[in-house]
Simulated scan of single mutants.
Amino acid sequence: MQDRTISRRSALALAGAGIVAGLGLVGCGGASAPSGSGTSSSTYKIGILQLTEHPALDAANKGFIRALDASGISYTADQQNAQNDQSACQTIAAKFAGDGDDLIFAIATPAAQAAAGATSEIPIVGTAITDFVEAGLAEASDRPGKNVTGTSDLSPVAEQLDLMKKVLPEVKLVGILYSTAEANSAVQVKAAEDELERLGIASKRFGVSSSNEIQSMMEAAVGEVDAVYAPTDNTVSSSMAQVAQIARDAKVPVICGEEAQVDAGGLFSLSVSYEELGYKAGEMAVKILTGKAKPAELPIEHMAADELKVVSNKETADALNVDLSALKA
């Protein structure tokens, strides 16, 4: 009988004076997994550390659990959300390490960095991470060399901006909205600047240190630029509804790094599927748990070109009077 237990605890409570036990959901079905590198009862203990709540990261979490369930292994999953608080990430990661979990699943770069800082022994599988090497999580993409591997959400930045050029040929200046505190954003900002320069379009950075600065920075941006590019940045993504509303009021289109940002009001994106990224990460975790692979030798996985999809927001296009037919060309 498969034992699937998912407990939920408040990350903020963990970071405070004590650790508060959360709610548990128990389900069972399927056959028992063979003994591997997990606990003596053949039920693997998995700690899941998610940086914050927003649809892309939630989808990655969902995909990971779906892969575990499809594998038939027996496991317990301790679900924790750090509410975009780095100190909470570190506290949760330290707890997972202290609990002696068999594997840690880290969703987003800061979560994976916290997990890697807490343990060099427990296998860590990350997702929603743009560049594992740039973030200090791996020595190389094809052979990580440490206890961390996973799936990358590296956006097709050049292709996204090429689409922008087709849809919005009159754009002369693009504002790049990003968090200065996120290593994954720096990679994408540089890629965006390089591509915009190649296209003959000027760019300007609009960096924020926290979500509290989003409103004022966006209000400044829409007064200067013809369009805004929002990469797959956790701080920006979690505030995307606010970003989109300010941009719409100013009649400035927002080109997005991923699908959930479009759903929140952005104009369009060529997007990875975060649920599929999570699923791929789950398959990697199963290989590690069952002794079929080691994180140090398991290459970082990316979405293939044919797995990307164009997504757009018709309501936003209508409000901006933008013709999206070029997306299908």
Score class of each variant (00 low, 15 high):
residue 85 D to K: 09
residue 23 L to K: 15
residue 119 T to F: 00
residue 58 D to C: 09
residue 127 T to Y: 02
residue 119 T to P: 01
residue 53 E to T: 14
residue 70 A to M: 10
residue 59 A to S: 12
residue 127 T to P: 03
residue 100 G to H: 08
residue 70 A to K: 14
residue 103 L to K: 00
residue 108 A to V: 12
residue 99 D to T: 06
residue 29 G to D: 11
residue 35 S to G: 14
residue 39 T to N: 12
residue 89 C to P: 03
residue 115 A to V: 04
residue 105 F to E: 07
residue 30 G to L: 11
residue 70 A to E: 15
residue 76 T to M: 06
residue 86 Q to H: 13
residue 14 L to Y: 06
residue 73 I to Y: 01
residue 51 L to A: 07
residue 64 F to E: 02
residue 51 L to T: 06
residue 35 S to N: 11
residue 59 A to T: 06
residue 109 T to L: 03
residue 93 A to T: 04
residue 111 A to M: 09
residue 26 V to Y: 13
residue 57 L to V: 11
residue 72 G to K: 05
residue 89 C to T: 06
residue 43 T to E: 12
residue 118 A to W: 01
residue 80 Q to I: 07
residue 119 T to W: 00
residue 114 A to G: 05
residue 75 Y to N: 00
residue 49 L to N: 02
residue 61 N to L: 11
residue 49 L to A: 07
residue 54 H to L: 10
residue 100 G to N: 05
residue 112 A to R: 03
residue 40 S to F: 11
residue 19 I to P: 02
residue 43 T to G: 03
residue 32 S to C: 15
residue 120 S to A: 15
residue 54 H to S: 05
residue 116 A to W: 01
residue 42 S to D: 13
residue 67 A to L: 08
residue 92 I to F: 06
residue 50 Q to H: 10
residue 120 S to K: 15
residue 53 E to S: 15
residue 75 Y to A: 00
residue 17 A to P: 08
residue 68 L to A: 05
residue 108 A to C: 12
residue 116 A to P: 06
residue 81 N to D: 12
residue 73 I to K: 00
residue 114 A to Q: 02
residue 106 A to I: 08
residue 52 T to K: 04
residue 52 T to Q: 08
residue 29 G to I: 08
residue 88 A to L: 06
residue 101 D to R: 13
residue 105 F to D: 01
residue 27 G to E: 15
residue 30 G to E: 13
residue 127 T to I: 08
residue 86 Q to T: 15
residue 44 Y to D: 00
residue 25 L to S: 12
residue 95 K to I: 10
residue 68 L to K: 04
residue 124 I to G: 00
residue 43 T to A: 09
residue 43 T to C: 14
residue 50 Q to Y: 03
residue 95 K to C: 03
residue 119 T to R: 02
residue 31 A to S: 15
residue 117 G to T: 07
residue 15 A to C: 07
residue 105 F to A: 10
residue 124 I to S: 02
residue 51 L to V: 10
residue 83 Q to P: 04
residue 103 L to H: 01
residue 50 Q to E: 12
residue 32 S to K: 15
residue 114 A to H: 02
residue 98 G to W: 07
residue 53 E to R: 13
residue 70 A to Y: 09
residue 39 T to Q: 14
residue 105 F to R: 04
residue 63 G to R: 02
residue 31 A to I: 12
residue 34 P to M: 10
residue 39 T to R: 14
residue 125 V to G: 03
residue 86 Q to S: 15
residue 78 D to V: 04
residue 36 G to H: 03
residue 41 S to Y: 08
residue 60 A to M: 08
residue 14 L to G: 13
residue 123 P to L: 05
residue 126 G to R: 01
residue 122 I to P: 00
residue 38 G to P: 05
residue 123 P to H: 03
residue 93 A to L: 06
residue 95 K to D: 13
residue 89 C to S: 11
residue 35 S to D: 12
residue 31 A to V: 14
residue 14 L to P: 00
residue 74 S to E: 07
residue 48 I to T: 09
residue 78 D to G: 02
residue 53 E to V: 11
residue 23 L to C: 08
residue 30 G to I: 08
residue 27 G to V: 13
residue 16 G to I: 08
residue 47 G to K: 01
residue 113 Q to N: 09
residue 86 Q to E: 14
residue 46 I to E: 00
residue 27 G to C: 10
residue 123 P to A: 06
residue 64 F to T: 04
